[in-house]
Design a protein around this nucleic acid. Sequence first.
DNA 1: CACCAGGCAAGTA
DNA 2: TACTTGCATGGT
Length: 217
Amino acid sequence: MGEDEKIVLNRMFSVLYNTLGPSYWWPGDTTFEICVGAILTQNTNWNNVEKAISNLKANNLLSPERLFFLDDEELAELIRPAGYFRIKTNRLKNFLLFLKQEVNFEIEKLKHYSLYDLRNKLLSVKGIGPETADSMLLYAFEKEIFVVDAYTHRIFNRHNLIEDQVSYEELQEFCMENLPKDIHIYKEFHALIVRVGKKWCKKKKAECNTCPLCGID
DNA sequence: CACCAGGCAAGTA
DNA sequence: TACTTGCATGGT
């Protein structure tokens, strides 16, 4: 039972990696930049997020302290291209307040926290849900946790690996049980899923005829 | 033009 | 618990 699923997931990984190549994820130079990107990319194309991040960089504002003390209105204008800019302004500010209160803006200190301690603390910040928290944990804080997203759900469902109604945590557990427990694999597999999903596994149109995963099962 | 993007919280029943 | 809705820009 479980062995078959391991085989399928490992085959998916190698097919995707061999056809698409390495992903070099997450784009972003610092721990903080990755966290900011994780909030900005919620239900939003990364293209738009890049514009917002480059606005912040151009104004030398990609630091926890400086962003914390920036007026909400100015922050909103800078991140406007990322969409949902008023909501995301509040979510960023909530995260920045958490950084101030938890580690006095010294974000690197969070790397010493244990996985589930940090996960619970991130989830308690309003505006950080499971996917955003796990993206930060895996890519920014180097914790061994798998990131589930809409594409993971859609692709795994279309390949009859999971029921459509499974929860985030259930799907996450399924992935972590059937993939090698390796942070590098987790990083690359999530990235590959997003890349293949964007191109071949859209919400309505499933252009599976040319998808690398077509006929894998 | 319609559709969608690397979600989340709040409201409703 | 299990739906539904608002949030918003920019690319295809």
